[in-house]
Amino acid sequence: MTTGAPTPTHPARPRRSRLLTYLPLGVAAWLVLEIWLLTMVAGATGGITVFLLLLAALVLGSVVIKQAGRRAFQNLNEALQRGGAPSGSNGGGNGLMMLGGLLLMIPGLISDALGLLLLIPPVQQALGRYAERTVDRKLREATQGTLGGAFQQARMHRPDGKVVQGEVIRDEPSDEPRDPPQGPRPPLTH
């Protein structure tokens, strides 16, 4: 007989992050704002002007993505010819250029403005430095000094945050066959 707290029949659901909670609302608000802005510009200038703006942004975005991809491939070839790893000197710039091109290709004036903003070199450098610092900080927090520590923590904690304790019992090989256990297994206790 055990004298601990009863085991819940329904495991507690892990808590959703704020990003996952508000992301659908943010995307919906962005879409409504894009459509409203396009209709306002179409009402002021005409539908042909809006169509030409969107077409120009699509063409510019595809040219930017093609150029950034070509430059990234060229950097990779040069690094492989030197016999080393690709340098991180412009890797973030190429990625941000591709993101800017993708934002230009998405229909909408707000996404076009953000895409054009990402094509400005000082903005690229500032965002690249910020992203690098953020990734470094998150990696340090996740590993707590060693990568093995992160894997150890991942093994010990269940998704609901509870720690599962137990021990490994290894059977010694024997000549006689074992009988399988009969009936239900006894419950685990703390």
Rank of each mutant, 00 (worst) to 15 (best):
V59H: 00
P14W: 05
T3Q: 07
L55D: 03
H190I: 10
N75D: 15
V64E: 02
L118G: 03
L53G: 10
L102P: 00
L127Y: 08
G43C: 12
V163D: 13
R178H: 12
L99R: 02
S62A: 11
L55N: 01
A131R: 09
Y130Q: 09
P187T: 08
S17H: 11
S89N: 14
T49Y: 10
P186G: 08
M105I: 01
H157E: 12
I48W: 10
L23N: 07
G115M: 02
N77G: 09
P24G: 05
I110T: 00
Q153C: 03
V135I: 07
R185Q: 10
A126Y: 01
G101W: 07
G100H: 02
P14K: 08
A68T: 01
A56T: 00
T146P: 03
A79G: 14
L33H: 00
L76T: 15
R178I: 04
E167V: 09
L58T: 03
D175L: 10
A57C: 00
L147F: 07
D160Q: 07
T146R: 09
S174A: 14
P184A: 01
V164W: 14
E141K: 13
G92V: 03
E176N: 07
G91E: 12
L23D: 03
D160F: 05
M98H: 04
A28H: 02
S87M: 10
I110K: 00
